[in-house]
Design a protein around this nucleic acid. Structure first.
Lengths: 350, 350
DNA sequence: TTGATTTATTGGAACGTTCCATTTATAGGC
DNA sequence: GCCTATAAATGGAACGTTCCAATAAATCAA
């Protein structure tokens, strides 16, 4: 049925008995062609099994409509939600974003970015992999392709970032733990090569500082941002002489790991040890006990990132404002009831 | 720093004092050019901030190295795992797959496929959206682009499919429930517009048939393949005069929903009602109670699909064998202990 | 030295579009 | 009937690459 060689607009032109220019006009929905001609051409398009060659077209008009989305960990439902938020707005704009996964690997990220650039993307939304070098986006910036960072950003970069208010979220969560009466606090998971880590840890530390938790009563354990990492964090923390009684976790994944490790030890999250997560993924609500977590409106941030990108493309600029999204603490069961009554007042005092 | 107009191989040629052909040769790593010349050219490439234009190149050589991956629900961790499996093998082959999400929407799927085709993909790995019309891939087949279905397939299609042995998995799970002593069984979730649904339901029914569960004692409730869908299924099933005591769920997501609804009613999965899931996503192991589920080796199927695709591209064919992957029941806690001792023998009798 | 062979390099046509400048057809005004 | 204005359709150049055929330079055999 299909001829071996793929059909071009010239084949269509021949089939419809018009010129290639006419076909091109029809393809672009130009109002200049007579309706009957358009119908004839469209029929020919159907008949020859034509598929549009965007590469050839871009050679002339130089602005593609593909947007690349580079994500560091597709298996984290958090990022999937982010992607879904973005897709919502791109779909409305008639754009199909291509998603690529870097699996938290800077080398892979390099390949992925290169491939996307070669494909001639109009813009790039990136959640950079851990360990991304400062120069990784130099070439892309030089090429004038708009980039926005989502959720994560790079230490010194002029690339606009869309991220939640990590500092405030961590502060809120820590304040909550202190209000519950906890006095020996931990911060679990993440590693210092991530800017987000410093933001969240910073919020934790500031809350400790201003609410009277001395440095000696703070435990900080870096670790993988996964369930496994969380389990490891809890183990090392509990091995200390005066172990913490509550932890703010870098991530919901870490928090789940901590709760798992707790259970493995016969302890119960909530009553024996308080844990709060970060990101508020959908699972948080359904876990047992339900996880108290910092909600960041993931899909909303995705939408915002997509909007910023669209605007950048439209105004052909490579600069835009950062955007920090509102956060809120959603209290569930994983921190249990108050530890001692008078502690509740402390949060208000700050 | 960057000149406004993007650099081409002609700019490089000028900069390096060679011809464009030489530059092209260097770009392709041809052994024909003198090493010193190659070095000179590579320096020029760096200096002018060149980015390769794959669209232009494909115009001549007509075989791209991009593969599209079309997935029906990115938020389901199951599909993310599938994607990750594929990526592993593509990465080794130096290929960057582009992932696109259809959100279970056939219209969106149409757009996504069109866009990918226009981009000139070398092949397509697809998990078709629910309600995909039979003709949806006609044009793509006609264009001679290899397609393989992963996890799901279409009713009458010659496109090769890589999927687990759904029938057997469901049979195994049902047998397990019967061996546990259950006599009133349910099948929850999914809908009959999916081929997988018929496969899984078929396995369930065959097991009922051959192990002596009369039709009157089988409850079948279709529903969304999500937590929400699972909750709804349980509600309608329990409203019946003689409600089931155990359910095989279409999906782990459905199973989680069922367990949630159970808990909401003050019932416990395992002791009060047995539930088994399908797919064995990572969460299954960590749930409380841990979910008994049919493991399908998701990442492995992803790898297999990628291999098949690579082979199809290499041998420039559009045909390949179907592949059905081995499954196994992983027994955890969600079916509780045996219901009555003599029931245990029945499974062996089959 | 000469011609044959090998090694490096090169010009030009082609790929499938778009878009500008033209041409051709149609209609309107007189 | 002719001229002008408008509408519809068209040819050709250009976009950035690859690849073939051809050239130029270096090496070798005699």
């Amino acid at each position: 049925m299909a001829s071996r060689a793929k059909a071009t607009i010239l084949d269509i032109a021949r089939e419809a008995g018009v010129s290639k220019s006419t076909v091109s006009l029809v393809l672009q929905g130009s109002g200049l062609i007579r309706p009957e001609t358009a119908v004839k051409v469209r029929k020919a398009i159907e008949d020859v099994g034509y598929v549009y060659n965007r590469g050839a077209a871009n050679l002339r008009k130089a602005h593609s409509n593909v947007i690349g989305m580079v994500i560091n960990d597709l298996t984290n439902p958090f990022f999937a939600e982010l992607a879904v938020g973005m897709e919502r707005v791109f779909q409305a704009a008639g754009i199909v974003p291509f998603i690529a996964n870097t699996a938290e690997n800077p080398v892979r990220q390099e390949e992925v970015l290169k491939s996307l650039m070669e494909q001639g993307v109009a813009g790039l939304i990136v959640s950079p992999a851990r360990g991304t070098t400062p120069g990784a986006f130099r070439r892309i910036e030089a090429a004038g392709v708009p980039v926005v960072f989502a959720m994560r950003r790079l230490p010194e970069s002029r690339i606009p970032a869309i991220a939640p208010d990590n500092h405030r979220g961590a502060y809120l969560a820590t304040q909550h733990l202190i209000a519950k009466g906890h006095r020996r606090l931990a911060f679990f998971g993440g590693s210092s090569d991530l800017v987000v880590y410093h933001d969240r840890l910073g919020g934790f530390l500031e809350a400790c500082e201003s609410l009277g938790i001395a440095a000696a009563y703070r435990t900080i354990v870096e670790g993988e941002t996964s369930r496994k990492g969380g389990m490891a964090c809890l183990e090392t923390a509990l091995a200390a002489p005066e172990p913490p009684t509550a932890a703010l976790c870098f991530n919901d994944a870490v928090a789940f790991g901590v709760m798992l490790a707790l259970r493995k030890r016969g302890l119960e999250a909530g009553s024996d040890f308080a844990v709060v997560g970060f990101d508020d993924v959908v699972e948080a609500e359904h876990y047992i006990p339900a996880l108290t977590s910092v909600a960041v409106d993931t899909a909303g941030l995705g939408e915002r990132a997509a909007h910023v990108m669209l605007k950048m493309i439209q105004s052909r600029t490579t600069r835009a404002e950062d955007h920090v999204g509102a956060v809120s603490l959603v209290v569930r069961e994983s921190c249990g009831p108050d530890r001692n009554r008078h502690g509740a007042g402390m949060g208000d005092a700050a």
